[in-house]
Nucleic acid binder design. Structure first.
Lengths: 211, 211
DNA sequence: ATGGGTGCGTACGGTAGCGTATGGTCCCTT
DNA sequence: AAGGGACCATACGCTACCGTACGCACCCAT
C-alpha cells in the first residue's frame, strides 16, 4: 500500500491545475489562459481538465479564489508589526509591492484587475481584497498617530501608487529611480499633510525618530 | 429603369476604422478588438478592412499612434497654465484623470497599458507618452517652486496614482470618496516632504507569499 | 463610352479553442 | 479476482477568427 512509487504516475488534482493556471496567467494574461495551452504545459490533454473542471470559467473562478485567499492572508502577515515599528512596516509594504521584485505576483495582480474591469464577479473579488488591504494598512497609519480620515486617504494613495507605477514605463525620465521611489514612499508615509492643523498636528509625532 | 439605390455610399477611410477601433478597445479591451467584430460594427465586411490595412496588427499600431499623438497633444494643453496658476493646474490634471469622468479615455489608457506589458513596441509608445506627461507635469511643479528631484518624484506619484486608482474597487472602504480624493490630491500637490530618512533602515526581509 | 482604379462583398482555406463523447488504464475495494 | 471508480487520451463537432482570392459596382479621367 505505502511503498512503491517507482511508477511516477503523477496524478493531477484541482490545485495542480490552478497552480499551473496562475503561471500562465502571470505570463500571458487572462486572454492567454486557455485550457489546451495549460494542458500542454502540464503534459496532459484537456480530457483531464474537463474531469476536474466544469468548464474554463470554473478554472478561472478557482484561480480567483485561490488568489483572493492568498492576498488576504498575505496582507495580514505583512501588516502585523511589532508595536512601535508600524512606520517601518508601512515602508516595507510599499517596497515589497513597488519594487521590481515579486514580479510574478504583480503580473497576476494586474491581470486580475484588468479582467475585473469587464467582469462583475471578478470585480467583487477584487473589492474584497482591496478592502482587506486598505483596512490593514489603515491600522498601521492609525498606530502611527495619523487621524482616521487621513489614514484612509494615505493607504488608498499607497495602493493606487504601487499598482499604477507597475503600469508605467519611465526609463528615460529620471536616472535615479531608487531616489524617486524613496521620495514617493516618504510622501505617502510621512509627508506633512496640509489639511492637518498647524499647532497640534497629531501627525507630527510620527516624525520623531523611531530609532 | 434604374434601381436607384442612391444610398449615401459612405466610404470608410483609415481614420474611420481607427476611430471605431478605439471604441471597441475602450469597451472590450485589446483581446476583444477583432477585425470581423469591428467590421460588423461599422456595417461593412472585412473585405473593406483588408483594403485599408495590411493585417490586424497594422490596425493596432495605427490605433496606438493616434492614441499617442492625442495624449501628447492633450497633456501640453492641460499643463499650459497661466503664470501663477500652476498649482491650480496641477489639481486640475489630477482631477481630470482620477475622477470618473473621461471614462472612455481611461479605459483606453488601461487597455493600452495592459497590452504594453507583453508587447515591446507598445511599451515603447507608452514610454513616450509617459515621458511627455511627466516632463510637462514636472514643469508645473518647478513653477511652483518645488525642487527638481522632488518635482520628478511628485509627478511620478501623480500619474501612478491616477492609473492605479482606476484599477481599484473601494466601494466599501470609505464612504466619502470625494474627501479621500481631495486629500490625496493635497498629498501629491502640496504636502510638505520630509528630508530625514529612516526608509532604508533594516526593513524586515519578509517576502510576500506567492500564488 | 470605356477602361482602370477604388472600395467593398463573398467565398474559401486554415488555425485555435471550447466542450462532449467514448473508451482505455490504472488502482482500490471487497 | 473482479468490479467499479478515478483519471486521462482520443476523436469529434462546432464556433470564432485570420488572411487571401476574386468578383462586382461605382467613380473619374481620357
Amino acid at each position: 500500500m505505502e511503498f512503491t512509487l517507482n511508477k511516477p504516475r503523477i496524478q493531477l488534482d484541482r490545485d495542480a491545475w490552478v497552480h499551473g493556471a496562475m503561471d500562465v496567467l502571470a505570463e500571458e494574461g487572462i486572454a492567454g489562459l486557455r485550457v489546451e495551452v495549460l494542458a500542454k504545459r502540464l503534459s496532459v490533454t484537456k480530457g483531464s481538465f474537463y474531469w476536474h473542471f466544469e468548464d474554463r470559467r470554473d478554472l478561472l473562478l478557482a484561480v480567483l479564489h485561490v488568489w483572493k485567499e492568498g492576498r488576504i492572508r498575505d496582507i495580514v502577515k505583512q501588516t502585523r508589526a511589532q508595536p512601535g515599528k508600524e512606520l517601518e512596516q508601512i515602508y516595507h509594504v510599499i517596497d515589497v509591492y513597488s519594487a521590481g521584485r515579486n514580479r510574478r505576483g504583480m503580473m497576476i495582480e494586474l491581470a486580475v484587475r484588468d479582467w475585473a474591469r469587464r467582469d462583475a464577479e471578478t470585480a467583487a473579488i477584487v473589492a474584497e481584497v482591496d478592502d482587506s488591504r486598505l483596512r490593514c494598512a489603515r491600522e498601521l497609519f492609525l498606530a502611527c498617530g495619523v487621524p482616521f480620515d487621513e489614514a484612509s486617504s494615505r493607504c488608498m494613495l499607497l495602493y493606487a501608487y504601487v499598482f499604477g507605477i507597475s503600469l508605467m514605463v519611465f526609463d528615460s525620465f529620471d536616472s535615479d529611480v531608487a531616489r524617486v521611489k524613496r521620495d514617493i514612499a516618504d510622501l505617502i508615509a510621512r509627508s506633512r499633510s496640509i489639511g492637518a492643523d498647524i499647532s497640534s498636528s497629531s501627525s507630527a509625532s510620527q516624525q520623531t525618530g523611531q530609532h
